[in-house]
Design a protein around this nucleic acid. Structure first.
Lengths: 178, 178
DNA sequence: CAACGATACGTACACTCGTACACATGGGAT
DNA sequence: ATCCCATGTGTACGAGTGTACGTATCGTTG
């Protein structure tokens, strides 16, 4: 362990935590497993993050940033003349085809807020940011309902081990849009 | 520990597991915590349930039974002349007013299927049963979308610490029904 | 250049956990 | 009535965990 004075230490620990959650789930997250994944000594993780909750907050925040960046870059959404329901259904398809593991990881972090109040502001921020992305295309209430339906569809697929049906999603999203 | 030959031992362990998840979350579920809650020795829980996953399967199954019984007994749903969107929105309201803790517990067990493949058949069974309850009122695809939207709305409230808006839910459910 | 504080490192402790196992008990089959 | 085996009970062990703390190292500030 000769790597002293690493200015990006904290960030690398967060990345390692995300990888650990991706492979072993939140249940497998510990100071030691993160330290091993980040290749830093145990004391380093406990120094930067006093509790695992702090580490989870940082991980969810970073995960949200990655996610919303990917969403913003999705050109389908930006085309103002495209069918919104069609675009959102295609976006969901991209999430699923982009490796189910990544989607599971992001949802696991997001859903962790259910039992961890410190994560709830971060989760709320996520829905707000996403709703804002849709703001130009619909009213706020419809935007929130679209997000809720997308969440529900994703979860139904992920929780039951089913497959994603883009045409079905498109149809139901269109009904919300009206 | 004189209580020998308890024919309902297994069932009481499942109930204890549900109570433990309710108070301490799945993270707090262990053979020992369940044994203490059920007032049985450690060896008894490991005898009836070789792994915690087995115990979780039993707990989710029982939780589903309780839930679907409550749903079936909801008279609002059974009235064939009532507005379906209105009835479902009111049902959601009942879930929230019935103590947020119970709703959290049921969702935590349900969402645990995300990372535990053994729970996925049970989760799938749950959505199937619920969809069947709605079968008399709409087509299967619409029923599944209604469930997805209800899940999404519930989660948005639970994950962000927000409050449930019945009118909003009613409006969006009605759009799905068309 | 000196000193201080932030960061890094290694280790030890007390605790909880899953698991295994030996022994006890009594219901039900024969 | 007897025997078998499912069920119940208690204990021990090794592995993993959060936490605490003493020491080491450099960047920065004065």
């Amino acid at each position: 362990m000769v790597r002293r004075y690493d200015p990006e230490r904290r960030g690398r620990i967060i990345d390692a935590a995300i990888r650990v959650v991706g492979t072993k789930g939140i249940a497998g997250l510990s100071h030691r497993s993160v330290a091993a994944e980040a290749d830093v000594p145990l004391g380093s993780t406990t120094y930067h993050f006093a509790s695992l909750d702090e580490l989870l907050v940082a991980a969810l925040r970073r995960s949200n940033e990655n996610f919303s960046r990917a969403m913003r870059e999705s050109e389908a959404l930006l085309a103002p003349d495209a069918d919104l329901a069609e675009a959102l259904a295609r976006l969901l398809g991209e999430w699923f085809s982009g490796g189910r593991g990544r989607l599971e990881l992001e949802y696991e972090l997001y859903l962790a807020a259910l039992r961890r109040p410190v994560l709830q502001p971060v989760a709320a921020e996520w829905t707000d940011v996403t709703a804002e992305l849709l703001a130009g295309r619909t009213d706020p209430a419809t935007a929130r309902a679209l997000i809720a339906l997308m969440d529900g569809i994703c979860l139904q697929v992920l929780l039951t081990g089913g497959t994603y049906d883009a045409a079905y999603a498109r149809e139901m999203l269109a009904r919300i849009i009206g």
